[in-house]
Structure formats: structure tokens, C-alpha cells
Amino acid sequence: MRSSLIMAALVVLALAAPFAVYPVLLMTILCFALFAASFNLLLGYVGLLSFGHAMFFGGGAYITGYLVRDLKWPMELGLVGAVVVALIAGLFLGTIAIRRQGIYFAMITLAFSQMIYFIFLQAPFTGGENGLQGIPRTPLLGILPVETAFSFYYAVLVAVGLGLLLIYRIVYSPFGELLRAIRDNAVRVDSLGFDVNRHKILAFTLSAALAAFAGGLKALVFQFAPLADVSWTVSGEVILMTLLGGLGTFSGPLFGAAIIILLNDTLSSAGEWALVLQGVIFLIVLVFFRTGFVGLLSRTKIIKLV
């Protein structure tokens, strides 16, 4: 009852937001929220720390950009293309990375992401260090023009909403229940006769596809796929967002993404100090509230969302 009220309030807020706030900023938050939520699917619900998730996010941006700008695909198909490539790449890279655990898994994903960074730096269609620029926004479903940030906001809102719904479905599915069991005690799951690695690979693949979807959306928002989006700093930033917001909670990564993006935005004039302040806030939340910002909220009894 209470949570459906909160949901309704959130929807109204999301619909009204672009009247008060710069829509591009809102869309940035939405894209990173979906990215962080897809990352949380791995770290929060399976306990797998990928240190190279920007390869899917930034890669999705490049592929969408390439398909829409160079191959003249409609943007919806550009996003589908990015998701399909990420499904294949995620399955392939996940199958290799999953053979190792803990820090080694993190290092393998980092190594892959560095390779992919280099590939995108060198590839003929990516524009090297300048990034892939001038991605057109084709009319929505071939008819609705979405050139203005204001109108495109609603398309992004729906797309991110659908992405988050899918993540919610995954988390609270028979598969999601098994993922939580793996996070709790993988040895026991194995001894019950489940193939733990195959479940992990499926989770990795789904997470990669959702991250690529988020990245592709961001490329359409800025009409630009920057090299920075495949770099390790973005891989680090999504870890920060997830931990700051609340690991393994559904709403945590969404809050985390919003906080980091808003901080970056308001503190961008402060230059280097922005990073220092970000670090301080991060430390305070993690030291005092192990479940991140969401933990803080429920501690203060403002809301209890998980």
C-alpha cells in the first residue's frame, strides 16, 4: 500500500521533472541509473565484481551510434543492435571470466575492457579520441519527432522504465532466487546439483545487455558516443554509484547514480575539489551506512525501499 503510493509519487515526479530541471541532466541520470542497476544485478545479487563494465556501456553507445549514423538504421533498431552485440560479447567474455573468482574475475574483466577500449580507439568508425559524433535522432517509431531534449526525455523515461522493470523481473524470478543462493553459498548450490557457472554466465550476459542498452540510450541523448564511456574510470564510477546507493537493493543504484551525476554537475565548477568532495561523501556513507544511501534512508525512517 505504502510502496504503491511511493511508486505513484515517483511516476508523477518523473513526468513533471523536465518542467523544472534541465532534461539532458535528467536523461543522464536515467541512463546511469539503468547502467548502475544492471551492474548491481551482478555485484549485488550474484556477488560478482566486474571491473570493466564500461566496455558494455560505452560499447553499446558506439554500436548504436554506428548503426544509426553510418548504416542509417532507425534509433530503436540501433539500440536492439547494441543489445544483441552485448549479448554475444557478454556470453563470450563471461564464459571466459567466470572461470576465475573474486579479484581474478575483476582483473579479467578489467583486462577485457582495456582491450575493448583500445579496439574502439583504433577502429575506423569511432572517431578515435574525439568519439563518434553527430548521431541523428530518428523519429520515434518512424513518426514522432524527438529532436528536442524535452520530447526525447519521455522516450528515455519509458525505455529506462522498461529496462528497470526487466531487472526487477530478473531479481524476483526463479532465476533471481537462485542467484541470491549463489551469492550466499555457491558451494552448497553446486552440491545440490545446479551448474553454478552457467547461472553466473547468464547473469553476466543479461547484465552486459542491459548496460549496453543504457549506453546506447546515452549516445542518443547526447548524439555522441565518447571514448570516455568505455574507459576504466566509468567502470569505477558505476561501482561507486552502486555502493553509494546501496548494494543489492533495487532502488540503491538509482539513488547512487542520481547523487553522483548531480554532484558532478553542481561541483563541475569546483574542478579538482569535486573529486575530493565526492570521495568524502562516499567514505561517510560507506563507513556509517553499510547499505549505502538506501540504508541511510531506511535508518532515518524517511522511506523503506528495497
Partner: peptide, 25 residues
């Protein structure tokens, strides 16, 4: 599975035979 409920613990085991453990949708 310490962070899951007793009933969820049982359901994980029973999922093996039910064979639905990959159904994320």
C-alpha cells in the same frame, strides 16, 4: 543460505527438480 528465509532455502533445493532455475522472465 544464511541471508535467505527458511522457506526460500527449501525452494532453492526444490527448484533443482522443477528445472526452472534459468527462467529469469
Amino acid at each position: 543460505f544464511p541471508k535467505m528465509t527458511v522457506l526460500e532455502n527449501m525452494r532453492v533445493a526444490l527448484q533443482r527438480k522443477a528445472g526452472r532455475s534459468y527462467r529469469f522472465w
